[in-house]
Design a protein around this nucleic acid. Structure first.
Lengths: 116, 116
DNA sequence: ATCGACCATCGACGATAATCGATGAAAGGC
DNA sequence: GCCTTTCATCGATTATCGTCGATGGTCGAT
């Protein structure tokens, strides 16, 4: 019982959920800082190394890295007993495109998904 | 008890919270749809008019409009007994700038705040 | 002054999310 | 084999969020 009455061509519910999910991935200060740390280092970093600088517990860091990885804002690579995370700049390009679509300035459609 | 150990020049906690707040404003499908509706109409709309097309209750719409207004993504204007909301495209320009700053590609500093 | 239309706010509820400590699982070194 | 290191996952706790119905406040008209 929850559809837009929609005489006008509006974003459908699924697209709205997809866009919201992207924004939600960066809707937490800890994740913003983790992403920025990885970007500034510019190299794959081990989780323990990240934890040393994050100011939050190891399980918390792991949790947030997982969320960032699910939307491909970071990439994970196992290396022996360690896991290296690095920033994935390509996928972060979705934001300008998403904003343009929401504002109706985009050619609609999927937009640059960044190679998901 | 929660600071980055920060030998490297990282985003400070306050900046991270500010960026996260911007992303959080669009981290909900209903807000994405409301913003898109306002953008497609391209004119100030009364709340009742928005409610007719939003598929959620009046108080819910009012709640979300308030959140969008707090970050200036929409602007409110009382007109008699009614309140008109319209999209504020200028402030939505913060996203490309925010992403560049988080990725360390920005000229640092405040970035285009959009005239807040 | 009263009424009606319009919208914001309140209170409550369920759902989701952030954080932590503890436990578990995989890989390497002994 | 066993122990250590490294990380992911689990369980619990607390806080935040989305939604609703109901109430309250403001303005215009009668």
């Amino acid at each position: 019982m929850n559809e837009m009455r929609s005489t006008t061509p509006l974003i459908d519910a699924e697209a709205a959920r997809r866009y919201a999910a992207w924004f939600r991935a960066l809707a937490d200060p800890t994740r913003v800082r983790l992403l920025h740390l990885l970007a500034m280092e510019g190299r794959p970093m081990a989780v323990g190394e990240i934890v040393e600088r994050a100011g939050v517990g190891q399980s918390t860091v792991s949790h947030h890295l997982k969320i960032l990885a699910e939307v491909r804002f970071v990439l994970a690579e196992r290396q022996g007993t360690s896991t290296r995370y690095e920033v994935n700049r390509t996928c972060l390009a979705v934001f300008p495109a998403a904003v343009r679509t929401i504002l109706g300035e985009a050619p609609a459609g999927e937009g640059s998904d960044g190679g998901r």
